[in-house]
């Protein structure tokens, strides 16, 4: 099973919950702003500890409150593309892209050059994040997550702040990843129409 998740989290007054057991490679979670979508992604990545429940992805248990399992974020093998990108401002684009490779043993499906080409960011490699546009920043963040040889991908609003041409580009990249089928992907979006073309496995949070 690619995703086997049943968690309850806490975020102020809101108590987002996610229950999901599927073999689908790409799962989309939609819902209005404030429904707790990002909190759930933070739980799955290990940055936030859920109140209770369990998280298994591709057969690996990352969290299980009954058995006191809580794998730290650096050991979960997750490729997390944050909504706000979070590129390291003191590193060049190339150093950002290669950041995960310094700490993870697994090898990525792509080389730096292949991925930079695919994401159309080859010309940006020597630049600093502060000089990038919103769309460029987002593509570098996606590249950084993919190059870290992740066991699964978490995409938080991957199409926000992209113009239609770039959004189309990222959409087709996500479709390529889905078709390759070797990395489970959990995608969060506020827009149900946006995810409709990508996957039939859609969870709606209210």
């Amino acid at each position: 099973m690619s995703f086997d998740i049943d968690i309850q989290a806490r975020m102020g007054d809101c108590r987002p919950a996610l229950r999901l057991a599927t073999d689908a490679t790409l799962v989309a979670v939609t819902g209005p702003s404030g429904a707790g979508k990002t909190t759930l992604l933070n739980c799955i990545s290990g940055l936030v500890t859920p109140d209770y429940g369990q998280i298994s992805i591709a057969g690996r248990t990352h969290f299980d409150s009954d058995n006191s399992i809580d794998v730290p974020p650096d050991k979960r093998g997750c490729g997390y593309v944050f909504q706000d990108a979070r590129l390291f401002p003191h590193l060049t684009v190339e150093q950002n892209l290669l950041f995960g490779q310094k700490y993870r043993r697994g090898s990525s499906h792509w080389t730096l050059d292949e991925l930079a080409d695919l994401l159309n960011i080859t010309a940006l490699l020597s630049r600093r994040p502060a000089s990038l546009s919103g769309g460029e920043t987002k593509r570098v963040a996606i590249g950084r997550a993919l190059l870290s040889a992740p066991d699964f991908l978490l995409l938080d609003e991957p199409l926000v702040s992209l113009d239609s041409e770039r959004a189309e580009h990222v959409n087709s990249l996500i479709e390529t990843l889905k078709a390759a089928g070797n990395i489970p992907i959990l995608l969060v979006s506020h827009d149900p129409a946006e995810v409709a073309r990508l996957t039939e496995t859609v969870i709606r949070l209210d």
Partner: peptide
């Protein structure tokens, strides 16, 4: 130093100490 950057480093495989060395210290 934005803690979110430290979180990003953690999800990319850096443990607490390495995230500190790679992000908090240089910044």
């Amino acid at each position: 130093v934005d803690r979110k950057l430290v979180q990003a480093a953690r999800t990319l495989g850096a443990n607490r100490w390495r995230a500190f060395l790679a992000v908090t210290l240089p910044l």
